[in-house]
Design a protein around this nucleic acid. Structure first.
Lengths: 351, 351
DNA sequence: CCTAGTTGCCGGAACGATCCGGCAAAACGA
DNA sequence: TCGTTTTGCCGGATCGTTCCGGCAACTAGG
């Protein structure tokens, strides 16, 4: 005992536990993690001793020996961060990881710019990955198992995918608008190169062609400031006065547009229908409340984490894809001329 | 070499580097971390060899030897999570940690319910801690260095504190409202037992007493759904028709209230002034845009992380407190009858 | 030239958990 | 009863890094 880097108060090791239980350290280890052959009586004694001494395992030592880290990484492009969907997603991931006794380490693009960067994790969850993002390329280069929420566009693939059929739900939304009297629905989509963004635009284009109406589409950056979005919407209705409905794809778009048009004297919900591709408190706060797709952030995060652990622990094969079903909340912003919809009616599930 | 848990392809150790550079492992270690006595020529050779071999350190081994983890924890009560302030805060923490080559591990209340819970980190950042939160008590019990954004109320203290003078900025906001013609400003505050919440209510009470006006205050849970907030606001104006201004303390409160009153025909910005204690995209999206305090989430997170590293590395003493200055964005929602304020004027800094 | 101090580098012992292989004792089969 | 297997437990090596102590070689002072 020449030196101790830090003589920590609560430094009870597995050897202490073993001694307290009157067994060897190997037996204590086996008993605690249920690995070797240990009699029930001995196991019980070890567990009791561990509890009594307040033993908590030294993860660094375990990591070193087992060549694992006990953590998974979570990468969130900064541009996406300011929306409720992603906050919920994060909670889904962290809660699920906690159930597996894993930590979650946040990975951001900044710093770590070195070429051979590899985060100190066993696997990674990606949120809505954009193929061009250099950080994502770097993460793929690590060779770690990676699960992404939405597919990664381009030649390279992630180990696992959790995806939703956004085209389907947008089509449902468009049909709903048509049913409520909208003849010329417009779309404000996002410029991001993600599967979600493309699926939305494709669904809109397909629907317009099938319905034989001229598309009115504008693009805005995902995190565009509300005034910019409002400017775009106003320009669109000036340019094409026949527009009688808006779908805002990204978070906050529909709410911002609704506010602008309402303050211009347009009657939202009758003369002009509004729907959002992403639900959030903004769609609920709007007057009237805005019909929206619930993108199930928390469930998505949980599912991604679960899939990653399945991959790490051999319960799933690389290449697996899971579908996450969504919901549409129909609200007064798409009531139409026909009738009235209460503030938050029973949900109608898509698919 | 009996077995390797995982025979990883890129497993280049510091011994490989040392051999490549023709020195002993000790010298290689010293050279890379600049610790011992190494001649410049040798250091250079080692660094070159490390780069050539693509050496990246095994953090588990380092952690084991040095009794550190290379990570800090970040605790965010789930109820707070759905606001932009906290997302920015997270980025601030993670970016700053990356600059110190530290990881950030998210800590959530779920799971880990065991008594002797201790996260695998060197220190912890708390966001707006609530004294009653049992998780916070548990974290305090770990004995790890803890920095909190806003003071922790109650007998126990954190190792370091980053705080803002919210009372000051709310007073400025109230004075601004008065200046613009408001005689009976109402406050919708938050029920959370945080320093921020109390400071806000205290500042309002003090100002009302000094100005000799009757206070009109309501409380709502921090994450109250917008319809509930709107209901509260409508009840307040029905009850006290003299109210001519609202301050919504929490994120989204002011925007929700503004929407409700506007749709009731109240002219926001002249007949009724609106201000928010927290800036977000919702205050910008509102028509008219809403005057708000910028709570500097990103800067707060960065400052907390920096202070934590200062404490960890002995550059700061326990008990230190840092003040984070805020800003007020004056917007059209508080233009008043007198004149007109453009959508986003030059900022006016408080104190 | 001799001693004391400095510089540059190295061997080896930790850190705490895991797990391979071994070895008694107990259980089993005939 | 005597081999053979199974059970229960253990010693010791190992993961990759850090850092203490030591040891030559060199420098400086007198």
């Amino acid at each position: 005992m020449t030196r101790k880097p830090a003589p920590p108060a609560g430094a009870v090791t597995i050897i202490d536990v073993a001694q307290a239980a009157g067994v060897a350290k190997t037996t204590a280890s086996d008993a605690l993690r249920g690995h070797g052959r240990v009699s029930p009586a001995t196991r019980e004694a070890v567990v009791a001793a561990a509890a009594r001494l307040g033993f908590s395992i030294n993860r660094s030592a375990r990591s070193l020996r087992t060549a694992t880290t006990g953590a998974i990484g979570l990468y969130i492009p900064q541009v996406l961060a300011h929306t409720e969907h992603y906050m919920s997603f994060i909670y889904g991931v962290v809660n699920e990881a906690a159930a597996f006794d894993y930590d979650v380490t946040l990975i951001v693009a900044s710093g770590h710019a070195k070429h051979g960067y590899a985060p100190h994790v066993d696997g990674i969850v990606l949120i809505d990955p954009v193929a061009e993002d250099p950080m994502i390329q770097r993460l793929l280069d690590t060779g770690l198992p990676i699960v992404s929420s939405e597919r990664l566009l381009g030649p390279r693939q992630t180990t696992g995918v959790v995806w939703s059929n956004h085209a389907h739900y947008f089509t449902l939304l468009l049909e709903h608008l048509a049913e409520r009297g909208a003849r010329h629905p417009a779309l404000i989509a996002s410029t991001t190169h993600s599967e979600w963004s493309f699926a939305v635009q494709q669904a809109y284009a397909d629907w317009c062609r099938a319905a034989d109406v001229a598309p009115h589409q504008a693009l805005a950056p995902f995190a565009a400031p509300p005034p910019r979005l409002q400017e775009i919407a106003r320009a669109m209705v000036t340019d094409a006065p026949e527009i009688d409905a808006f779908i805002g794809a990204g978070d906050g778009v529909a709410a911002a547009v609704a506010q602008a048009l309402a303050s211009d004297g347009v009657r939202i919900g009758s003369r002009m229908l509004i729907a959002s591709g992403v639900d959030s408190s903004a769609t609920l706060a709007a007057q009237p409340p805005i019909t929206a797709i619930n993108t199930q952030g928390g469930e998505g995060g949980q599912l991604c984490a679960r899939l990653l652990f399945d991959l790490l622990q051999g319960r799933a094969e690389p290449g697996v894809e899971l579908e996450l079903p969504l919901e549409i909340y129909y609200r007064a912003s798409t009531a139409g001329n026909a009738g009235h919809i209460s503030s938050r009616p029973g949900r109608k599930r898509g698919s």
